[in-house]
Design a protein around this nucleic acid. Sequence first.
DNA 1: CTTCATATCTTGACAGTGTCAACATACGCT
DNA 2: AGCGTATGTTGACACTGTCAAGATATGAAG
Lengths: 205, 205
Amino acid sequence: MAQVSQSYHHGDLRQTLINTARSRIAEHGVGSLSLRKLAEDAGVSRTAPYHHFKDKSALLSAIAAEGFTQWQQVAREIFDNTELSARQRFRTFIHRYIGFAAGNPELYELMFGRPIWQSNSATDDLKSVAYPCFQFQVEMTRYWQAQGLLPQQQDPLRLAQVTWGTLHGIARLLIDGIYADQSHIDDMCDCAADVFMRGAPHPHE
Amino acid sequence: MAQVSQSYHHGDLRQTLINTARSRIAEHGVGSLSLRKLAEDAGVSRTAPYHHFKDKSALLSAIAAEGFTQWQQVAREIFDNTELSARQRFRTFIHRYIGFAAGNPELYELMFGRPIWQSNSATDDLKSVAYPCFQFQVEMTRYWQAQGLLPQQQDPLRLAQVTWGTLHGIARLLIDGIYADQSHIDDMCDCAADVFMRGAPHPHE
DNA sequence: CTTCATATCTTGACAGTGTCAACATACGCT
DNA sequence: AGCGTATGTTGACACTGTCAAGATATGAAG
C-alpha cells in the first residue's frame, strides 16, 4: 500500500495530517494551526483534508483522542504496577499526571479545552475514548478510598471530581503560566498528595 | 461630555466596546467575537477600535481585567465578613468561587484562558489587577492555616496553589462541560471543603 | 479486460477575519 | 484663530474555513 509521493492519491493522508498537525500544535500552539498550511505541508491541496475530516474541529478531536489513549496507557500502567504500594502509586500518579500536562502543554490544552467540548461538538470517536478515561479516574479513586488513603465517607464520584479537579487545575495554572512555574511542579504535587492523604495511616512508604 | 449619537466622535467608545464585547462574549462565547462586528454594533467603522486597543488581544485583556476586579471584590467581601466563622467563610468562599465561574463561564474562560496569558501577551493593566488577586489567595490561605483549618506544616504558597488549583480545576471541568454538570456543584464544593478541612477541629460550625 | 461506482484530490469561489497605511474630521489648548 | 492631537474613515492585503463542481485514480463486478 505504500505510495510514491508523486502519485495523485496520497496513500495515508489522514494519519499524515494528524501527525503533522500534532507536531505543529506542540511547537506553535493550537491557535496557529491552519488547515491550509497543513495541507500544503502534506503536499496536498487546500480542500483535500475535508475528505478525511468533516471539520477543522473534527481533526482536532482526532488529535485529542490520540492524547487520551496515550494518557490512558500511562495511567493504567501506574495503577496496575503492583510492585509499588497503593500509597506510592497514588503519589506517582499525581506526579505523572502533572508531568504529562507540563510535557505536552498544547496537547493538554487541546484535550481539555473549551472548543472541543462545548455545545456537544465532541466527535463520537473522541467521546468513546475520553469517557472511559474519566471513568477510570473514578475506579482508581474508589480503590484508594478502599485502601484508606482517601476519605472513605465521601461519595466516590464526588471525590474523583475533586481529586481530578485538583490535578486538572494545577495543570492548567502551570500550562497557562499563571501563578505557578515549572520549578514548583514537584513541590506542588507532593503538597497535593499530602493534603489528600492527610490523616491516612503511614505504613512506611 | 455626553455626545449625540450622530456626532463624528463617539464620546466613550472604549468603554462601549468593552461593554458590548462583554455581553457578546457572555452570550455567544469568546470565539465568536469579531472586532468588525463589534465596531458595527457600536455604529463605528472597522478600524476605530484600534485607536483604543492595540490589538484584539488588548481588548480581551481589558475585559478580563474587569472580571478580576469584579471577583476580587466578592472575595474580599467574603473574607472580611467577620459575622461568619473562619470555617464558614472558607466554605462560602469555595461555593462563591465555583458559583462565579459557573455563572460567568465565558468570562471565566477568558480570564484564565491560554490566549491571554501565554507568551507574555498579558497587558500591564491586566497584570496589575490579576497579580494582587493571586496574592490575596495566598494571604487567605495563610489565615486559614493559622486558624487550623488547613494543614499548618505546608508552605502557604504551595498550599494556596493546591487549593486554588482545586477550585480552578473544578470550575473548568464544569465550564467545559466534561465530567461534571451543574447539578453537582454544591455537592462537589462541599466535598472539596470536607477534604481540605479533614482533621481540622469542628467548633460547631 | 472493460465498466462503473466510489474514494480521493483539484481548482475556483465566497464570506469572513485582523490589521496596516493614508486620509478626514473634530476637540481642546495656546 | 490656529494648530497639534485624539479620534474616526476608507481602501487594501493576506489570511482563514468551507462549499460546489469537476478531475482522477482505485477496486470490485461483469
